[in-house]
């Protein structure tokens, strides 16, 4: 059966990076039992192309089913599994173990700055609230008369391409020191999504969004630490997007 072949078909990375042992130290917290989070060690046998998500699954599926984390797509497009991996915000499904220093333990903990719910799960509502507050949808008073699409040149489309890639994973916002100390700050992700519309040639609502972000808790709180840009799994130039929104507020929409 060809399907036997299909099933065991392994890419060559499997051949190149052999099985190895890795220690994961996970910050666990069960709100029904624990007063404080606690660090728990797991020694795991992992393989060549395994991701941090595979290691978490191994713990959950073979050792302790109560380990709680979010995940869905497993290839970096749904934004479910942003977490702190060795102190940096990363998607567990997009971080290969072999790219970390596996001679040392790997530390895994929930995102910082959002309320901890259980193990690696944080409350996402404050994050989505900020997103919704910037009115993240196309505002336009008219539709094209011919019942067709609005015209937009490739250059106009390219102007906001970078910020359309956002998957709302919260890695940026929860890596921001300003956000850690002031949970009221809109945070980078909300500004990224405002940027996506402010620079869309079809949109007429920029002023509304710029007024919102000109607020005390808006763009001016950004201190260009660049943590957000480093954290973004989609490679969005987050700090630059924030700077562009600041400029637009000062000088008007370009």
């Amino acid at each position: 059966m060809a399907s036997d072949v299909l099933e065991k078909g392994g890419p060559r990375a499997h051949d190149v990076v052999p099985t190895f042992t890795v220690t994961m130290i996970v910050r666990r917290f069960d709100p029904e039992v624990d007063n404080e989070p606690r660090w728990v060690d797991y020694d795991l046998q992992m393989h060549g192309t395994d991701r941090v998500l595979d290691a978490l699954h191994k713990i959950k599926w073979e050792i302790d089913g109560s380990l709680a984390f979010r995940r869905s797509c497993a290839h970096g497009v749904c934004g479910s599994d942003a977490m702190r991996i060795n102190g940096r915000n990363r998607l567990a499904c997009k971080t290969l173990l072999k790219d970390l220093d596996i001679s040392k333990p790997i530390y895994i903990e929930a995102l910082k700055g959002l309320p901890l719910e259980k193990d690696l799960i944080v409350d996402m509502e404050p994050f989505f609230d900020s997103f919704r507050e910037v009115q993240p949808f196309l505002m336009s008073s008219s539709k094209p008369k011919d019942g067709k699409e609005r015209l937009q040149s490739s250059e106009e489309r390219a102007r906001f391409d970078d910020t359309t890639k956002c998957i709302l994973c919260a890695a940026c916002t929860s890596s921001c020191p300003v956000f850690w100390t002031d949970g009221q700050y809109f945070g980078p992700a909300a500004i990224v999504n405002a940027h996506r519309f402010i620079f869309d040639s079809r949109d007429e609502g920029s002023q509304v969004r710029m007024d919102i972000l000109n607020d005390r808790e808006g763009v001016w709180r950004c201190r260009t630490t660049f943590n957000c840009t480093d954290a973004c799994p989609r490679g969005i130039q987050v700090t630059q997007a924030i700077a562009e929104v600041k400029q637009a507020i000062m000088r008007g929409k370009p």
């Binding site: 539709k143 699409e149 609005r150 015209l151 937009q152 490739s154 489309r157 869309d200 949109d203």
Partner: peptide
């Protein structure tokens, strides 16, 4: 269905004439 999405704001890639 495609026009609806464009009108809702979907950023399609464009032709040199600015169409989808």
């Amino acid at each position: 269905a495609v026009i609806d999405l464009e009108n809702m704001g979907l950023p399609f890639n464009r032709t040199p004439e600015g169409r989808i």
